[in-house]
């Protein structure tokens, strides 16, 4: 199906730039880790996963501890961003879902006779290389 000569000659990222980027990435990650945690090994206690006011967890800390009303507004603002983006993403899902249905309608049905389908576009069966789409 594919001879080596069909493959493109490519000039992607050089090994040096990949190596430098990897070293920088790892170094910054290590520095971040050191800045955030230091050299101690520790973990969070169950306390953090206890959001209720009644349970006396972080929820009550917030309720009694927040002295900055603007924070409430900022949280509401992010909620709004979530809702707006969520609605937009849903629209995109529906558009693609419908587009996929239409594209599927243009394709051959499973088990459809190949000779009939080829006759429809006036082509010949010889070029039928694209069966299955991904060719892999």
């Amino acid at each position: 199906m594919t001879a080596e000569e069909d493959l493109p000659e490519v000039s992607g990222y050089s090994r040096v730039s990949v190596l430098i980027s990897a070293v920088v990435g790892l170094a910054v990650a290590a520095l971040s880790l050191f800045w955030a945690q230091g050299l101690r090994i520790g973990y969070e206690s169950l306390y953090r996963v206890n959001p209720s006011v009644e349970g006396g967890g972080i929820g009550s800390d917030w309720v009694f501890g927040n002295t900055i009303p603007a924070l409430d507004f900022l949280i509401a603002l992010i909620h709004a961003a979530d809702v707006i983006m969520g609605a937009f993403i849903l629209v995109m899902v529906f558009i693609h879902w419908a587009a996929f249905q239409r594209l599927a309608g243009q394709m051959r049905e499973p088990g459809e006779d190949v000779s009939e389908a080829v006759a429809a576009d006036g082509g010949s069966p010889a070029g039928g290389d694209g069966q299955g789409g991904d060719g892999a």
């Binding site: 594919t2 493109p8 490519v10 243009q106 499973p110 576009d121 082509g123 290389d129 069966q131």
Partner: peptide, 29 residues
């Protein structure tokens, strides 16, 4: 699958395509 592993062309060489050719693909059952 990176581009370096994908052949450059397919289909009829000198024919100007009218469609993407999706009508030649079979839908998965």
């Amino acid at each position: 699958i990176p581009r370096s592993m994908v052949p450059e062309h397919h289909g009829d060489e000198d024919e100007e395509p009218d469609t993407t050719g999706i009508e030649r693909l079979s839908l998965s059952p």
